[in-house]
Amino acid sequence: HVAEQLTPVPLDGPKEESLQLLSKLKDSSSSCAVDVSTMWWEATGSRELCVVTACESSVSIWKPLASDCWAKIYTWELAEIPVIQIVPLPDACNLVCIALGDLEIGEIRLLHYSSENDSFKQSLVKNGNIKAVLGLKDRRLVSSSRTTQEQQVEVLSFSETGRSKDGQTLMAPEETVLAFAEVEWMRDALVGTTVVNSIVVWNVKTGQLLKKMHIGYSYPASICHRAYSDSGLLFVVLSHPHAKESESCGNPAFRVVAFNPKTARSMGVMFSSLPPGHPGRQYLEGDVKDASAAAVLTSGAIAVWDLLLGQCTALLPPAPEGDWALTRWATGSTCLLAGQRDGTVCLYRY
């Protein structure tokens, strides 16, 4: 029941001027940057968006100052297990999670600032063989983890002060869940993508697994980034980490797929291919916010797509000092973060 209806859209050519450099920060103590993100920060009554940078052994928070400068507020040291990724909690303030591990995630920690006693803390949230993790609205965190026998999918909640509240176990599908996405404007709906290219839908409040729908064999290893419901259909933005430039558009980097949750039938709505001139198989490391997607290409450039137009709208070539390694959209703004391995982070207005 999987139908594909993909209509190629001619590329006008990406426009570099659609990305405007706002500022740059450099963590001189960083040996090898592994991730970058943003978080809300409130210390003296005013709430501002701060940048979070992670290298293998520490996570730092940066506050904007006047004249496009950044000041490091604090660094959490994490010496025992390497940091793999930052897991932002979208609307939380003074709270951010991180995933640590060697090849796979073995531990999730909460990093927290308490304005009451002006103290910075970190605490263990979960450990095990963790396959996927995502921060949800309302200070919640969902993760999938595996033991030799079974998979556990769990939603944890945090209080404003960073305390862990009761969790909710979700019914796990047989196959391993590799990524999650909140269904926008539906607080209790969550989707995930699995190793066998299925979309699963949960009711987070009851823990029920509502539906499992196959994405299609032609695009393996799909990762869900964003989901929303409209007119009775569930629209899911998927990325294909191993994209390849193709004239027939048969191997796009991002796709928007419409699912009918009642019948489990699906249809490709729009696809976004690699910009021309990036031949060969690419490993994409990307991020999606609203209708915009950004990804680092194997060439060291960053491409930005408008997912509704199916077009690449901006291309940041590799910087003179080195290739881009990371890209993330900033929470609650139209800023794109672009990071290099040496700890340099550039903020662009899109």
């Binding site: 509502l210 539906k211 419409a258 009918n260 019948t263 249809m267 490709g268």
Partner: peptide, 23 residues
């Protein structure tokens, strides 16, 4: 997209699937 290929659509799919799915 042509919604007719996707079968009958319900605006309340989430509530209906929650009522049908095992607890």
């Amino acid at each position: 997209c042509n919604g007719s290929d996707l079968g009958p659509i319900s605006l309340n799919w989430f509530e209906e699937l929650s009522a049908e799915a095992p607890p």
